[in-house]
């Protein structure tokens, strides 16, 4: 079915080596730029935007999405919606260098036995890390296939010990204008927040991601910790999480506040329920070039078999 080109192992440049080459080019280039910047007396902070790529030591491969063709790393890390760094797709990769992800603490609060906080390095050890290759469908009508590294959100929830009152879970992004200059604009109600029903959060497909392509998550993709819910539109996958709150009532997310008629709490991928302003029936797969045809969008982004029963009997036009 899928054509896998056969490349002899001897032909493949090891990542260390090509990384080294790129590093060299980058350092040489930055040297020249820095020199020029000094000459012109201007500050130049693009150097900070390029955080070094680091491998994640240990994670296990899983069969999820192994039949999918991965979207190139370059596209996944340069075509982003992360309004905390600007509203253009290229802004996050250009400006997310100002985000400092160490030290980083996530606070757990609300309907839990007792509030807790956990450092990012301990989150890495909370559960065995796995690679999950998921389709990601943006509400704007494009999609990617991303090899995430992370662990089931359910593992963190068990560790957090929610009380019987907890029906929903709310996530909150860092609120810091210095590190996230896009928060100076009023385009959304900061800090960004998102929510899930507890059964959605406990679903085995729902993960917290700490990496992609076997490497630590780049800042522009939501470092150091982000949510991935593959059957929902991409904006549900909240980035750079600092707070997780268990609640009895349904949280109101930033996008629900921004456009109540356009963005609902569920935001499940659904080709039959259009965005009020554009169609959701098809999508453009990123990385396929100028002459590729749009694909048909699948119910629940193709994960209907696994998640469909959670919404049985619900009017998905009403609960969009």
């Amino acid at each position: 079915m899928k054509h896998v080109p056969i490349i002899p192992a001897s032909e493949i440049t090891p990542r260390e080596i090509y990384q080294g080459r790129r590093e060299f080019i980058k350092v040489a280039g930055l040297g020249a730029i820095a020199g020029a910047a000094m000459l012109s007396g201007m500050s130049f902070d693009a150097a900070a935007a390029q955080s070094p790529r680091r491998k994640i030591g240990k994670f296990v491969k899983t069969p999820y999405g192994s039949d999918e063709k991965l979207t190139p790393y370059e596209d996944i890390t340069t075509y982003n919606n992360f309004y905390e760094f600007g509203t253009n797709k290229s802004d996050p990769s250009q400006y997310a260098g100002s985000l400092v992800t160490r030290p980083w603490t996530v606070n757990i609060e609300g309907e839990v036995k007792r509030p807790k906080s956990i450092a990012i390095d301990d989150i890495f050890k909370l559960a065995p890390l796995e690679e999950r290759i998921y389709r990601m469908r943006c509400v704007e009508g494009w999609s990617m296939v991303i090899p995430w590294v992370g662990f089931p959100l359910a593992d963190l929830i068990k560790w957090a010990e929610p009380t019987g009152n907890a029906k929903y879970i709310e996530f909150i992004t860092l609120d810091n204008q210095q590190m996230m200059p896009g928060q100076r604009s009023g385009v959304l109600d900061w800090p960004y927040n998102e929510g899930l029903r507890l059964d959605e959060a406990m679903h085995p497909l729902t993960i917290l991601a700490v990496g992609l392509y076997g490497e630590v998550l780049p800042n522009q993709n939501g470092a150091p910790l982000r949510l991935v819910v593959p059957w929902k539109y991409g904006f549900k996958g909240i980035k750079s999480i600092v707070k997780i709150r268990f609640t009895e009532k349904m949280p109101v997310s930033s996008w629900m506040k921004a456009g109540p008629s356009e963005y609902g709490f569920y935001s499940n991928v659904n080709p039959n329920v259009d965005h009020p302003r554009w169609s959701q029936a098809t999508e453009r797969r990123i990385g396929e070039g100028l002459f590729a045809r749009r694909r048909k969008t699948l119910m629940f982004n193709g994960y209907a078999e696994q998640v469909g029963q959670m919404y049985a009997g619900m009017d998905l036009k009403k609960y969009f």
């Binding site: 370059e74 596209d75 340069t78 075509y79 797709k89 290229s90 494009w142 453009r284 990123i286 990385g287 070039g289 100028l290 590729a292």
Partner: peptide, 15 residues
């Protein structure tokens, strides 16, 4: 840009 692969991740939208 089209000839030099410079149209970005979503070339159709870009154009």
């Amino acid at each position: 840009l089209g000839l030099t692969d410079g149209l970005g991740a979503n070339p159709v939208e870009f154009v």
